[in-house]
Design a binder for these strands. Structure first.
Lengths: 231, 231
DNA sequence: GCAAAAGTGTTTGGATTACACCCATGC
DNA sequence: GCATGGGTGTAATCCAAACACTTTTGC
């Protein structure tokens, strides 16, 4: 019935790649590592590795991210699967992309295992990466952008306390177009924000107010179907 | 560096599952096959099979759908990948879900290979399926529903000529809520439809007008960024 | 005072909602 | 005639875009 023996189907490997996105200085950035081993030694790459044959995918994604960058407690979501027969020089390796959103300032990352260095690179400025990682990054960033428009996940990228301008810049980078300040602020009126008494410091203009998301309130309302996030 | 030999990673198999969605009688339906072989012999299942170690994923999806159901020329899109180590009783098999939208009336399907029967089943009424196929169906139907709201793919589900009521019913089934007829028709004013002189027949009430989508015009406008589909 | 960015108000036109009403067909 | 769904109009309301304006800080 099959053109090969049934047992010969069990000859492939698979890997996960972890696309970690953060936001600073008005740009969405992604975490890259420098490979210290072949293939693609000394190339920059998305953190990723082979999955053990008895390992579940989400756990593998956590483990691999931790081993290469030291990051823990990062909630990852599955994106696209890439399976071109020629994408890996050492055999058939299907890779499943996972992505996560993090607050860059709250993290300490450090290269380990076979990662020589780690770096945050603005998504729109990355150069040539190992394997088909440019394609993977592009597809996953597209997906992130779509998600940002329909689900309240921008909260995970912004710092704990942020200005409304930073909030706006995040969406401007995501969509690639500038927004009108007044209209943007009217639009987000429906989102439950907490205003702090504390203000921005060390700026040579009028200091902006700092806000946080009221996560509890927001989740309550989501459950009650009182609002649909839409940007 | 690894806990097992490098070569031992190459011991997994992977499959694709093809979720084919259609729309008739006011319901979105999916194509199921009855398995004639173990495991899960005589269970209903999503059409799917193992991918050859040197075969590309999209081509495998086409081949497998053709072998089991006779369907050809169906454009498939990748959805989620399911990889729980215990999901297949005969070894580690990762499965990648692909989905497609088709016009049921234009197709002739017939069971072949190890499929005993094929059947169109309303998505919201399917019973227990083989493997983790209920989970796969649910996740993929969710994804389809989201896509229906943001991209003009409803065209692929409706018959070539359709009534505005059928159009409305498709979205009502997708969202699970009824719409106001007059308002629905105002909303779709922006979509380029062609009205036929021909009308509905064999109904015991006033016959409805038949419409088709003006695909060319629609694509032109998409390219010019003149409209964003939103339902 | 001036530059720079924070922050707000007003107008306008287009979309969304709720609801009522008329029309064509089979029986 | 009447049941059944097809098809349309209106008024109230909400929302988004465009744009101008005021405020607060550092220098």
């Amino acid at each position: 019935m099959y053109k090969i023996e049934f047992s010969d189907f069990f000859s492939s490997a698979f890997s996960v790649d972890c696309l970690i996105f953060g936001f600073t200085e008005g740009k969405i950035k992604t975490l890259l590592i420098k490979r210290s081993i072949e293939p693609y030694k000394d190339y920059w790459a998305i953190p990723g590795d082979l999955v053990y044959p008895d390992e579940d995918l989400p756990l593998a994604a956590e483990r691999i991210l931790r081993e290469l960058t030291g990051l823990t407690n990062v909630q990852m979501h599955q994106a696209h699967t890439f399976g071109s027969p020629s994408r890996h020089p050492q055999g058939r390796v299907i890779t499943i992309a996972y992505y996560a959103l993090v607050r860059i300032e709250e993290l300490s990352i450090k290269a380990s295992s076979w990662a020589d260095e780690v770096r945050w690179e603005p998504v729109l400025e990355v150069g040539d990466l190992a394997f088909d990682h440019n394609e993977i990054l592009e597809a996953t960033f597209d997906r992130l952008n779509k998600q940002l428009s329909i689900e309240p996940i921008c909260f995970e990228l912004l710092p704990e306390k942020f200005t409304l301008n930073e909030f706006q810049q995040l969406f401007e980078y995501s969509k690639g177009i500038p927004f009108d300040k007044a209209n943007f602020r009217k639009k987000i009126k429906g989102i439950p924000l907490v205003k702090h008494t504390e203000k921005q410091t060390n700026v040579k203009h009028r200091p902006a107010n700092l806000f946080s998301f009221n996560t509890c309130k927001e989740l309550d309302r989501l459950e009650e179907n009182e609002w649909a996030f839409k940007m």
